[in-house]
Amino acid sequence: MTFKLIINGKTLKGETTTEAVDAATAEKVFKQYANDNGLDGEWTYDDATKTFTITE
């Protein structure tokens, strides 16, 4: 399955995708991506669209 991450950061904005077997796996990938890029914010997830959002 394809999951999307929408980034609404103070300095970084955009989106990225990952292929994962489930939402929990995708969340780990996206949280590592956010950590690697210095993002810290509030996370939301929409199961209907398989989309995570981080807002700083």
Rank of each mutant, 00 (worst) to 15 (best):
M1I: 10
M1K: 13
M1R: 08
T2S: 07
T2I: 14
K4W: 06
K4I: 08
K4T: 13
L5I: 02
L5F: 07
L5Q: 00
L5Y: 01
I7N: 02
I7F: 15
I7S: 04
N8I: 14
N8A: 07
N8L: 13
N8M: 15
G9A: 06
G9E: 04
G9L: 15
G9K: 15
K10N: 15
K10D: 14
K10Y: 14
K10T: 14
T11P: 06
T11S: 11
L12K: 04
L12F: 12
K13S: 11
K13V: 15
E15A: 04
E15W: 04
E15C: 04
T16I: 14
T16K: 14
T16S: 10
T17F: 12
T17V: 09
E19N: 10
E19T: 15
A20H: 03
A20L: 03
A20I: 02
A20R: 03
D22K: 04
D22R: 03
D22S: 07
A23E: 10
A23P: 12
A23H: 08
T25G: 09
A26S: 02
A26L: 01
E27P: 00
K28F: 14
V29R: 06
V29S: 11
Q32F: 07
Q32N: 14
Q32I: 10
Q32P: 01
Q32W: 09
Y33N: 02
A34D: 00
N35R: 14
N35I: 14
D36V: 12
G38L: 15
G38V: 06
L39E: 02
L39D: 02
D40W: 06
D40N: 12
D40E: 12
G41W: 11
G41E: 01
W43E: 00
W43C: 02
W43T: 02
W43M: 13
T44C: 04
T44Q: 13
T44S: 11
D46S: 06
D46P: 00
D47H: 08
D47N: 13
A48F: 11
A48N: 08
T49S: 10
T49K: 06
T49D: 05
K50E: 03
K50L: 15
F52N: 00
T53R: 07
T53N: 04
I54P: 01
I54R: 01
T55W: 09
T55M: 10
E56M: 05
E56L: 11
